[in-house]
């Protein structure tokens, strides 16, 4: 799959490959240390952030990360703001 930044494709593929093996070989087996892919993630992020800026994709309107009201603890913090106003 392509990255939003045409010049980030290679970095994205490298990161995805690293993540996929970390995810199935380590994380799902109970190892939560996520430093293995951190260096490549950092470089990939620099590229993708630059591209998001260039394309003027506005991420400001979305909530701070993971304040989605999904998790029980987040639900307490953000209250009922994700609830729909009505139903039809």
């Amino acid at each position: 799959m392509s990255s939003v930044g045409e010049d980030c494709n290679e970095l994205k593929q490298q990161y995805d490959a690293c993540f996929n093996s970390w995810f199935s070989e380590r994380f799902l087996k109970g190892q939560t240390d996520d430093s293995a892919c951190a260096p490549i993630f950092r470089v990939y992020q620099e590229c993708v952030k630059r591209s998001i800026k260039e394309k003027k994709i506005d991420l400001q309107e979305i909530d701070p990360i993971f304040e989605t009201g999904l998790e029980e603890d987040n639900a307490k913090k953000s209250g009922a703001k994700q609830q729909p106003a009505g139903k039809s």
């Binding site: 799959m1 392509s2 990255s3 939003v4 930044g5 980030c8 994205k12 990161y15 995805d16 993540f19 994380f27 939560t32 240390d33 996520d34 993630f41 990939y44 992020q45 993708v48 952030k49 998001i52 991420l59 990360i65």
Partner: peptide, 9 residues
Amino acid sequence: TEDTIQREV
């Protein structure tokens, strides 16, 4: 397109 833009444990 598909990108991961944040990730943490």
